[in-house]
Structures are given as C-alpha cells and as structure tokens.
Amino acid sequence: MERYVIGIDLGGSKMAAALADGQGRVLAEERRPTPVEAGAEGVLSALAELVEDLLRAQNLTERDLSAVGLGIPGMIDRERGLCLFSPNLFWRNVDVAGFWRERFSCRLVVDNDVRLGAVAEAEWGAGRGARDLIFVALGTGIGSGLILGGEVYRGSRGLAGEIGHITVSRDGPVCNCGNHGCLEVYAAGPAIARRAQEAMASEPESLLWRLAGGDKEKVTAELVSLAADQGDELAQRIWEETGEYLGIGLASVATLLNPERIVVGGGVAQAGEKLFRPLVRTLKARAMTAPGLTYPVLPAALGSAAGVRGAVAAALKL
C-alpha cells in the first residue's frame, strides 16, 4: 500500500500544506489564512481541519499517512514537539505534539520553519549536493538553517541558526531583542522600510512618496523594491546599503563556518539582483581571504514553497 506524508508550513498570516508520496512528489496543495487571533488552540484546530480536508479531497484517510511534518516560525523543542516561543503567532510553550496526539494517531515532527526551508533547499533546491550549507531567510526577521556535514545543525537546545542577532556593529541602533547593532536592525524587511522612511524626509521628489500615497508609514520593503525597479534613486540606494549590511553579516558567518554554499531566500530576497549584487561584492571584500577560499552565494530556488517542501522532507525522514 502506498504511504503518503503531509508537510505543513505554518506562518503568521498563511498556512500551507502539501500532500506528497513516498518519494516526496507533491500531489496536492492547499493554502489558508492563519487564524492567529483564535489562539494556539484555534490555529491548531484549523490546521487539523486543513489536514483532514487535504486527505478527503484525495479520497485518503489518516491511515494512508506515514507521518506529518510541521514548520513553525519560532523556537522549537523538537524532541518534545513544543513551540517554546513564536513572536509571529504570539505563542509561548504550546504543546503542539500533545494536541496532535488527541486528534491523530500518525507521527508528527515539529521543527523551525527556516531549518525546514534549509532542508528543502539542500534536498531539492539551490543547495543540492552541498554538505556545508547556510540557508538564509530574509523576511520580517533574519533567520538561517545551518546544514553542517550534511545534517541540520541545531546546537545544544535546538536554537542554532539565529544569525539575525549577530552583532555587526557594537554601538549600532537598538534591536527588538534589546541588543545594539544586530544584523536584523539593518537588513530585515522592517529595517529596510524604516531606513527608506528616514531618507524620504529629505527627498520629497522620491517616487516612494507617490507609491505610498503620500503616507510615509505605508512604505514597506516590497514598495521600496518596486520604486527601485522604476528607477527611484533613493530606493536603489537603500537596496545597495541593504546588500552591503547583509554582505557584512554573512561575511562573519562565512568566516566562522567556511560553508560550501550560501543560499539566500525569503520574501526580501525577491528583490533580486539589486540586493544580491552589493551583497556578493561586500561578502567578497569583507570575508577572510586565503588562497582557495570561496563563498558562493545563490538565490534560493524553491521560493515560498521551501517551508512546505522541507516539512515534507522531515516527515519522510521520520
């Protein structure tokens, strides 16, 4: 009898699930809004419903499933299936595995969404064939999945990979985490928007004013990308600087880990060339140089599907 797996990527605004066969081929997918306001219980119920609907649509039942993989944006205790903390979902110590056991009998593996993204890029994406790989996810925050020696590296408590809080400047601006000069304060989505807003004050001619309908507060990283593509100099400068900051942060990570490849994904990476060009240039200039040392940087290949595909991979490995 063919056995299937389901991979789920639970985000702060959307949740996506995919049903795959034993080879990881995706047979059906479904995407729904995440009812964050309903609390952990509500979100997990919605998730259970999503799984049941996905099965029913394929005329399958839970008995046809061998395992389910679930990626959550936050700090996860993988052994116990706990979400320790998720700022996006407003969760703290949620017993995901416990909830699951009440509803289903098939096995569940819970992991951090970015770690799973790294697994997917390593298995099917831009990281294929690399044994030492850093997958960087640029979004509201900056996270990473470290694949070292072919395996996800988790550290002592499963928290390894939080490169958003590497200090790039000791006396820099204050970060959400309370520190100064974290990479995230310079280069995450909100930081890009903030730096654009600050620059707009002295540049009334910037296209950004028009795109934001005259309201600075409406500027997002996406809008800054749009403005840059339409030739706005301020927006282009912001991307240039963002690439430089990321290049500096990743130079540190690259010098520490000497990876075979660095794969950059997440929503902010959609900015493309205007971000990657200064990033690669700065990384080359600022990472330790020695004969033969190289740090190839590639854009992620799986886009927003990386989380779901990684969850499928994790379920297959159970």
Binding site: D132, Y153, S169, L256, L257, N258
Partner: peptide
C-alpha cells in the same frame, strides 16, 4: 559541534578573529 571538530568545507572554519564587529 556534536562532540566533533567542525572544520567547514575547506578546513577554514572557526576564524573567530575575523568576525566583523565594526562596520
């Protein structure tokens, strides 16, 4: 890492002295 020395792809991992601490 995990009880074993982590060396990286070309054996150059661990160069803590060359982390960037000042932009």
């Amino acid at each position: 890492f995990g009880g074993e020395i982590y060396r990286g792809f070309q054996g150059a991992a661990g160069e803590v002295g060359h982390m960037i601490i000042d932009i």
